[in-house]
Structure formats: C-alpha cells, structure tokens
C-alpha cells in the first residue's frame, strides 16, 4: 500500500528509495480507465471518414477517438507546445478536408501550439495530435517539433530569463526596476 510504495519499486518505475512524505489517501475510487486503445497504426491511412460520421460531430465529445478511427497518439510524440502552421497546399485543400481537418488547417494560418489548437477547437489533445500527424503526412501542415534538449540549452534559458525580466508587473515595472535601491 502507500507506505510500502516508497521502499518497493516506486510509482514512476524507478526503484529509488525516497523520503516518505505522509501521502494523503484519496477516498474516492480511481476513475475508470479509458477503453483500451490500439497501438497507433504504423502507416497513417488517408483519412476518409464517411460523411455521416462527420455529421455526427456534435456527439463526438463522448467518443473523441472516432475521429481518429481509434488511433491514439503515443505519449512520447509531438509535445504540447509543438508549433503547427498551415501550408499553402493545406489552405488550397481546405474544401476537400473533413470538418476537423478543415478546422485545424484553417486555424493554423498563424502558428499555433497543439495545446492551443485543442483548446480552441475543443478537441482532446490526443485527437489533435493524431489528426495533425495525418495532415503533416499529407503536407497540409508544417509541424515544428521542439527538441527536449532545448530545456538544458544555456542560451535558451538566458533568453527566457531576459525576456521574462522585461515583463512588466501590474504597475508597469520590469523585474529589475522594482528592487529596492
């Protein structure tokens, strides 16, 4: 149980022994798992949902993975902040796209992150991942995948720090001007 979790294999798959914080036990049962999803298809099929499938989109919030014909995005692929931009091919193809593809390409006239896209279109993030992957394959979207190593890049970190320091507080003052003299 909880106490032993710190001495046996940790919950994150790491056998590391951790200092014991007194965990709060949740009283409620764990939520039901999502239906088991198949591995992503190795080759993306040309997306061609039947017209009646598209017209039932108002109910898709319940079963979002209908949109992706059951495929799910692997957790490791396409980070949330991945930037996507429509290509001119994508914009030209707009009339031929399915409802969700159309919505994604049209929204990406300006660069957007996958997270912003999902939020704006009210689609599950993983649904957006899968459809964006299809659109990339079809060359309707340019997908700019960030590298995880950016997080340890000294020059990037310095730029972020400098940029954030310049963000004014609610009195309009940047970071360095509100230090006591």
């Amino acid at each position: 149980m909880v106490g032993s979790a710190a001495t046996t294999e940790g919950p994150y798959g790491s056998p590391q022994v951790r200092p014991l914080r007194p965990y709060v036990m949740a009283d409620d049962p764990p939520p039901p798992p999502l239906p088991a999803a198949p591995e992503p298809a190795p080759e993306p099929e040309p997306p061609a949902p039947a017209p009646e499938e598209v017209s039932t989109r108002s109910s898709l919030a319940v079963r979002p993975f209908l949109l992706t014909t059951g495929r799910v995005a692997g957790a490791a692929e396409l980070p949330l902040e991945t930037q996507v931009v429509a290509t001119s091919d994508g914009l030209a193809a707009l009339p031929a796209l399915t409802f969700e593809q159309h919505a994604i390409v049209a929204a990406c006239r300006v660069p957007l992150s996958l997270a912003e896209l999902a939020a704006r279109l009210r689609l599950h993030l993983n649904v957006v991942r899968v459809i964006a992957g299809d659109l990339r394959t079809a060359r309707h979207l340019a997908v700019y995948v960030p590298q995880a190593s950016t997080a340890q890049d000294v020059s990037v970190l310095r730029r972020v720090i400098d940029g954030l320091r310049a963000v004014p507080d609610s009195r309009g003052l940047p970071r360095d001007s509100d230090r006591p003299a």
Binding site: Q83, V85, A86, R109, V110, P111, A151, V156
Partner: peptide, 18 residues
C-alpha cells in the same frame, strides 16, 4: 529556406518553451 510546398503562410513559428 523551406521547400515551396511547405511555404509558410505565416512567419516561422517562435521557439516554444514551457
């Protein structure tokens, strides 16, 4: 430069960090 078929309809996206 990006190949023509992927010519941006917008500027190159910013580097996203989180």
């Amino acid at each position: 430069p990006e190949p023509e078929h992927l010519t941006a309809v917008a500027n190159r996206p910013p580097l996203p960090v989180k």
